[in-house]
């Protein structure tokens, strides 16, 4: 058998290379590959200028958003795309409106830029985000998501239902 091993090895390497090609094709979108690994608590994010409410920074409690933002965005994505539901609370545009910050020259920096809100955490977690190949990365028009004094707004009338397609949910970060 040993005489077959070189051939097998060559074959296995080539096959795995081929299978990896699509991944490699998008690999250059990842940022921060050369960074030292940091504990998560030491990551710094640009702070948004606004708060969602007096008691709450983001549209959901921060811990919840950290863990599940992709589910909210994904759910909203399908509802907007297929059913024309255009509530603002979980709209990606509103994410960008809040989380994109201006540089010293007073111009907005793309929210997926290195060290910006999305990229800093995503490169830490080695999760590629696909949103911004198509979606705008800077605020263009004023937010219509008004900061509220309470977390209950007209936009929360449609809560996330428990029937999110698990398949969709599991694909969240990649989309």
């Amino acid at each position: 058998m040993s005489q077959f091993l070189p051939a097998l090895r060559v074959f296995a390497v080539l096959l795995s290379l081929l299978l990896l090609l699509p991944q490699a094709a998008t690999a250059d979108d990842d940022d921060g590959g050369d960074k030292e690994t940091l504990p998560f608590s030491e990551l710094s994010f640009p702070e948004p200028e606004r708060r969602f409410s007096a008691t709450q920074k983001c549209v959901r409690p921060v811990a919840e958003m950290r863990r599940n933002h992709m589910t909210y965005i994904l759910h909203q994505r399908d509802e907007t795309m297929h059913e024309g539901i255009r509530t603002r609370q979980y709209s990606l545009e509103e994410c960008v409106n809040c989380h994109a910050v201006k540089n010293d020259e007073g111009e907005y920096v793309p929210v997926n830029g290195p060290d910006q809100f999305c990229a800093s955490c995503h490169s830490y977690a080695s999760v590629n985000i696909d949103c911004f190949q198509c979606h705008a990365t800077k605020p263009v028009r004023p937010s219509t998501l008004h900061t509220q004094s309470s977390t209950e707004t007209e936009h929360t009338t449609r809560e996330l239902s428990g029937t999110i397609n698990p398949l969709l949910a599991s694909e969240g970060p990649a989309q």
């Binding site: 545009e93 960008v96 190949q133 198509c134 979606h135 705008a136 800077k138 605020p139 263009v140 028009r141």
Partner: peptide, 11 residues
């Protein structure tokens, strides 16, 4: 593409 409109994503 760059600088798409927020209301018309395309890529």
């Amino acid at each position: 593409l760059h600088d798409q409109k927020p209301w018309a994503p395309r890529g």
